[in-house]
């Protein structure tokens, strides 16, 4: 085989691989949208589920999902961004930073079902929170923490060192430099990471089912149980309650994730453009 021929074959394989990946995505989206979208009406979005989800809408699961994400972000953002600031601004690269970084990477590798079980044992049972938004929020926060740490770290590192030098020679403390120069300039990148983690959190079932529970009531307090959209879909489909409503829920879920991903992609682009 001539090198040129090998090149052609390799290129052909790579191109078809890329198109196959795209085709799979489009196929999944198309199936869900075709089967689900016709049932998605304003009433479906604004009515509470009735008869275990056989009838009615998904309003309480939308509320649960948003509530859960907000609580997990409130926990994960300060922890994650704080860790990233500490790692990039306050430590010299060395053993300690390597251990912390390795730890967060391991955390990212923990299967979500294990995290769910951990959250169930610790928050639901041992700490007595029972199934609730708080238990679910903390568990989900643990899951998205590595994403936020990693992306924030990259964003903070991308802020030119010279800004910190200027802050220093003008008499600013390290913390003032972080607050006034580093974080504002890293914000688009950090935001991208947060949106990405929202995208991951919104579709999560394993962690959520063990910690938030499956109650169809609309949660008000953080100690109320609820059922996220992803879990609702899982139960509807798994127990064969209503495939029609399962697909409709899936359509709403996929549509939300799509919007979130497009938005984060857009943010990332603006971020990259702003840096050059």
């Amino acid at each position: 085989m001539t090198p040129k021929r090998a090149e052609h074959i390799a290129l052909g394989l790579m191109v078809s691989g890329a198109f196959l990946a795209l085709a799979i995505l489009l196929f999944i989206i198309a199936v869900i949208m075709i089967k689900g979208l016709p049932h998605v009406t304003l009433r479906f979005l604004l009515d509470n589920p009735m008869d275990m989800g056989r009838a009615g809408g998904i309003f309480s699961t939308i509320v649960s999902t948003i509530y859960l994400l907000v609580v997990s972000l409130i926990i994960a953002i300060p922890l994650g961004v704080g860790t990233a600031i500490y790692l990039t601004e306050y430590t010299v690269e060395g053993k300690v930073t390597k251990i912390i970084r390795f730890g967060t990477e391991c955390l990212a590798g923990v299967p979500s079902i294990i995290l769910g079980l951990f959250g169930f044992i610790l928050f639901v049972v041992k700490m007595g929170f029972s199934w609730c938004v708080l238990s679910g929020g903390i568990s989900l926060a643990i899951m998205i923490l590595p994403v936020i740490i990693r992306t924030s770290e990259e964003a903070i590192k991308a802020v030119p060192q010279s800004y910190r030098d200027v802050n220093e020679v003008l008499g600013g403390s390290k913390w003032q430099g972080v607050i006034r120069l580093v974080l504002p300039n890293a914000a688009p990148g950090i935001l991208t990471g947060i949106i990405l983690s929202v995208g991951r959190g919104i579709g999560e079932t394993a962690v959520v089912i063990f910690t938030l529970g499956t109650s169809l009531r609309t949660p008000f307090s953080i100690f109320d149980s609820g059922r996220s959209m992803a879990v609702h879909f899982y139960i509807l489909a798994q127990e064969g309650i209503s495939m029609k409503n399962a697909y409709a829920t899936a359509a709403v879920l996929v549509f939300s994730i799509l919007i979130i991903n497009i938005f984060s992609y857009y943010m990332m682009h603006r971020f990259v453009k702003g840096r050059t």
């Binding site: 010279s162 800004y163 200027v166 802050n167 020679v169 003008l170 008499g171 600013g172 003032q176 006034r180």
Partner: peptide, 30 residues
């Protein structure tokens, strides 16, 4: 306090990504 009395300018100009005015008053704002 030492750095407020002994200021420094670098070889390559480093302007902060903000307005001319905010650049000028950065040292006072902090």
């Amino acid at each position: 306090p030492l750095r407020r009395k002994v200021s420094m300018v670098f070889a390559t100009p480093v302007v902060l990504p903000m307005s001319i005015f905010e650049n000028l008053v950065y040292g006072l704002r902090i």
